[in-house]
């Protein structure tokens, strides 16, 4: 039963990854007009030789399925093509931009998800008409504040209140850990707030749900203290839906990071992909989108597996 569940999930994963890679592969072929001419036109003069050369280099002179097969097998071996203008391997450019984005998303997830548990648990203890309305309005406001606006306003505040503080740009952690973290404070704040709002509301309602269950009543009847019941019994069960939402949040974080990187001038994947779009560097656009989406899919697969391990009921469905 268990093996069948895991194999089924693995087959789903393979299907989704193949589908995603095919769509990303199709991107360059879907550009209206001739992608090669557009790519050249954005940067140099168009000559028939250059068109033929770039077309051959991108493999566009072969049949669609052959092209996909070559592209996919290349990608699996870590060859995502070469950047049209610099001639550098695309993976090299992605590798350089990977760390800032990873750090930004990881820290935001840590802060948003980490704070949402105590906050949600705390909010679950307060009930009453005004609290209900306050929690709801607060959560929705947190969810709908544009992260880039929050970033811009926080830059404005810091430069008014603490003139001379450098908050923009990125310093590698290995170079200066303190400066690295200092510059991460505002971007992480801007990016994590919607997650905090969403997850703490979820933790609260899951907690309230769990508090009404029989096992909580039993624990109380056995004489367990209120604090113990809240944190030991109710919270543990409330965490199950929480974990799924954390996986889904990764999609928001990866998208949001693109915008927040732009606000704070962080040289991550978001800046890379936007730059590539403006100079029509399609191989780099494709590769960046593929890497980000594949990692999102894999994270969610891992979350699903974790979910099944924690809650055996899932495996039986």
């Amino acid at each position: 039963m268990r093996a069948k569940f895991f194999l089924g999930r693995l087959a789903d994963l393979a299907f989704v990854l193949i589908g995603v890679s095919f769509l990303v592969f199709l991107m360059i072929r879907l550009v209206p007009g001739d992608a090669v001419t557009i790519m050249l036109g954005a940067n140099t003069e168009i000559t028939p030789e250059r068109v033929a050369e770039l077309r051959a280099r991108l493999g566009l002179d072969q049949s669609l399925l052959v092209q996909y097969w070559l592209w996919l097998t290349g990608a699996l071996q870590g060859d995502l093509g070469t950047s049209v203008w610099t001639g550098r391997a695309v993976t090299e450019e992605i590798g350089a931009a990977l760390w800032p984005t990873l750090e930004l998303t990881f820290l935001s997830l840590l802060v948003g998800a980490g704070l949402s548990i105590p906050l949600g648990a705390f909010m679950a203890q307060a009930r009453g008409n005004w609290t209900e309305v306050g929690v709801r309005v607060g959560a929705i406001a947190g969810l709908t504040i544009p992260s880039f606006w929050l970033g811009i306003v926080s830059i404005l505040l810091v430069s008014k209140l603490l003139p001379g503080t450098s908050v923009l740009g990125y310093v590698p952690f290995t170079e200066d850990p303190l400066d690295n973290l200092r510059r991460m404070v505002l971007p992480v704040f801007a990016l994590s707030l919607p997650i905090l709002a969403n997850l703490s509301r979820l933790v609260r309602s899951a907690m309230l749900d769990a508090m009404g269950q029989d096992y909580v009543r039993t624990a109380r009847a056995k004489g367990a203290g209120r604090r113990r019941v809240v944190y030991k019994h109710a919270l543990r069960n409330a965490l199950i839906p929480f974990i799924t939402s954390v996986g889904v949040s990764m999609g928001y974080l990866l998208g949001g990071a693109i915008v927040v990187e732009q606000v704070f001038a962080i040289p991550g994947l978001g800046r890379l992909v936007l730059g590539a779009i403006s100079e029509r560097n399609y191989p780099l656009v494709q590769a960046t989108i593929l890497v980000m989406t594949a990692s999102f899919v894999l994270v969610n697969f891992a979350v699903d597996m974790l979910y099944a391990v924690i809650d055996p009921r899932v495996r039986r469905r």
Binding site: V16, G19, L23, M27, I258, V259, I277, Y282, I289, M292
Partner: peptide, 18 residues
């Protein structure tokens, strides 16, 4: 499912890139 697998903003950006 395949379309849903993309992060929302990233897919929108990909469509606009096209």
């Amino acid at each position: 499912d395949v379309i849903f697998a993309f992060p929302i903003l990233l897919l929108a950006i990909a469509v606009i890139a096209i």
